[in-house]
Amino acid sequence: MILTHSVKVCLATQPCDLRKSFDTLSVVVRNELREDPLSRKVFVFLNRQGDRVKMLYWDGSGLWILMKRLERGRFFRPRPTADGEVKLALKPEALEMLLSGIDLKDGMQRAWYELPEK
Rank of each mutant, 00 (worst) to 15 (best):
L38V: 03
L98Q: 01
D17S: 10
Y57M: 01
K8Y: 09
L18K: 04
D59F: 08
Y113N: 15
A89D: 09
P15L: 08
E71P: 03
L90G: 02
R77L: 15
S39C: 12
G107A: 10
A89L: 13
Y113R: 15
V7G: 05
Q14F: 13
K118F: 13
T13V: 14
S26Y: 05
L90D: 01
F22K: 03
M67C: 04
C10D: 01
S26W: 01
F22N: 12
L33I: 07
K105F: 07
Q49L: 11
D23K: 09
M97N: 09
W112M: 12
E96M: 09
K54Q: 04
D36C: 06
G101D: 06
M1V: 14
M1L: 14
A82T: 14
R48M: 09
G107V: 06
A82P: 01
D51Y: 11
V29P: 01
I102D: 08
I102S: 08
N31A: 13
E114T: 14
L33M: 11
V42R: 02
A12I: 06
R72S: 14
G62Q: 03
L99F: 05
L25E: 00
R30M: 12
L63R: 01
L70E: 02
H5V: 03
V9S: 02
K41S: 14
G73F: 13
L25T: 00
T24Q: 15
T24C: 07
M55C: 15
E96R: 08
F75C: 02
P92H: 08
M1W: 08
E93S: 14
R69L: 11
F76T: 15
I102G: 09
D106M: 10
E114L: 14
S100D: 14
Y57T: 01
S39I: 04
F75L: 05
M67F: 05
L104T: 06
L38Q: 14
G50E: 07
R30T: 14
L115G: 04
W64R: 05
R30Q: 15
R77M: 10
L115W: 12
M97W: 11
M67H: 07
K91G: 04
L38A: 15
D51V: 06
I2G: 07
F43V: 03
L98R: 00
V44H: 01
P80R: 08
Q14C: 07
V7E: 13
L99Y: 06
D59M: 06
G73E: 10
P78C: 04
C10N: 05
